[in-house]
Design a protein around this nucleic acid. Structure first.
Length: 419
RNA sequence: GGAGAGAUGGCUGAGCGGUUGAAAGCACCGGUCUUGAAAACCGGCAAAGGGGCAACUCUUUCCUGGGUUCGAAUCCCAGUCUCUCCGCCA
């Protein structure tokens, strides 16, 4: 969420910035809401002061007047609150401003590739898709998932279930041992205010699985990504500067409705309602966001390097970035059956955008209270990594070679084959 | 599920109708002392919002939302969360 003061102090730059994201605001409405708000605050405070003086003075003859003041204050307050809410909902629906070095563009076609790594495998045969491979191995079962749960779910069985678990473990070990992240096993259900903090709400409620509890209780949601929970660890906190940076990693299932993507990626397990993802979250001093984003992205690509999977790194253009992001790198892994790269990780710096929503702050050297910077990235999406391994490591006989680094995590198997 | 207890600043914790934005301790920061450090002593130390070029000043905030009162951290109601005991159960 943006700060109205910052917006006003440089309105033109702000409007230009968000217009890069194809976002327009009614600036007159915004300014008039702000004016009304401040006007009402001043009126209210004047009356409050008057009232305070009376009640401290103890002059009984003025008590009647004080009563009158109370009702006036109440009236102005409720009016002010209404305006304030309007203002807040206006502001909380505006996306983050892109950093200057983010390429401008409308959609994903304007993203720009900045690095390509790894050798694309050459097959002497026509490479099969992961679903075909898994089906042949009898280790992927979509029909069964349809029966038990519906579309966009999957059963992994046997050594592919093991592979999924191995991947999670391998990634977490690497991030904790080599990259300085602290492992977290978080709740998979988030409260409404938590979802608001990272920007999933109010705008993207349709993408979330909402849980039906008691009618009275606060709404709860299945997390769409561990980012939500991990980032909210610092909500409503004022951290000491020497506690930063904080780096968290968690492997969790993620739940997404994928509303609006009907008919897209319906085959295979590219796009599921539920999938495992190893998530990285960093909480840093605000001026360190840029460096941390590079660092985090390298942690993510480090996994692909270790797994010897070919990938490319892309910087998202202004039109393709997520709501809360100021800059995003996507990492795309090579998918042989589709003959193209597919997203396997997305690393974003959110600057202080989420921190303002969450009231996550720190005191710097000069005792100033500042909003922290938050970053999140997948390190990596486990389901898609599994797909990439199946397809890139497939052999002509339908077996799957296991990447060297994973063998210890796979009961020392060096390939997956029908028993 | 049954019975109790509680929620106060970065933390611990006092206050239970007015001079309390809130004692005290710890932590933290500055100073004195010291060759240096520690100890001791002195001083400082909440956040958000409004007004002001600024010095500064005003308002709000003691879990949340209502209520009583001229006045609420303190009383009443509802909710959320935490803890203890009993029951049940991965």
């Amino acid at each position: 969420m943006h700060n109205i003061k910052d917006i006003k102090s440089n309105l033109e730059v702000f409007i230009k910035g968000i217009s890069k994201r194809n976002f327009k605001i009614d600036e007159n409405l915004l300014l008039s809401l702000d004016n009304k708000n401040r006007d009402l605050i001043q009126k209210k405070e004047k009356l409050e002061q008057e009232k305070k003086i009376i009640s401290k003075g103890g002059d009984k003859s003025l008590f009647e007047k004080s009563k009158k003041l109370s009702s006036e204050i109440e009236q102005i307050s409720s009016e002010q609150l209404k305006i304030k809410n309007e203002l807040d909902s206006f502001l909380s629906n505006i996306p983050n401003l892109p950093l200057d070095d983010v390429p401008e563009g409308k959609d994903e076609s304007h993203n720009s590739e900045i690095e390509k790594k790894g050798k694309i495998p050459e097959f002497k045969f026509k490479p099969k898709s992961h679903s075909e491979l898994g089906d042949n191995l009898k280790m992927i079962d979509f029909d069964l998932a349809t029966k038990t749960s519906g579309s966009r779910f999957v059963f992994l069985k046997n050594n592919l279930a093991l592979l999924e678990r191995a991947l999670s473990n391998f990634m977490i070990d690497k991030h904790t041992n080599e990259n300085g992240y602290t492992e977290i096993s978080p709740p998979l259900i988030a409260s409404e205010s938590t979802m608001y903090g990272t920007g999933q709400l109010p705008k993207f409620i349709d993408d979330q699985f909402e849980l039906k509890l008691d009618d009275k209780a606060e709404k709860k949601f299945l997390i769409p990504t561990a980012e939500v929970i991990l980032t909210n660890i610092v909500r409503d906190k004022i951290l000491n500067i020497n506690e930063l940076p904080l780096r968290f990693v968690a492997s969790t299932p993620c739940f997404r409705k994928e509303a609006g993507s009907y008919g897209k990626d319906t085959k295979g397990m590219i796009r599921q309602h539920q999938f495992y993802k190893v998530e990285l979250v960093s909480i840093v001093e605000i001026e360190n966001c840029k460096n941390e984003l590079e660092r985090m992205t390298n942690c993510a690509t480090g996994i692909l390097d270790a797994l010897e999977l070919p990938y490319r790194k892309v910087v998202l253009c202004t039109g393709d970035m997520g709501f809360s992001a100021e800059k995003t790198y996507d990492i795309e892994v090579w998918i042989p059956s589709e003959n193209k790269y597919r997203e396997i990780s997305s690393c974003s710096s959110c600057g202080s955008f989420q921190a303002r929503r969450m009231k996550a702050r720190y005191k710097n050297d000069t005792k100033q209270t500042l909003f922290v910077g938050t970053l999140n990235g997948s390190g990596l999406a486990v389901g898609r990594t599994l797909i990439a391994i199946l397809e890139n490591y497939q052999q002509e006989d339908g077996t799957i070679k296991i990447p060297k680094v994973l063998i210890p995590y796979m009961k020392n198997l060096d390939k997956i084959s029908i028993k």
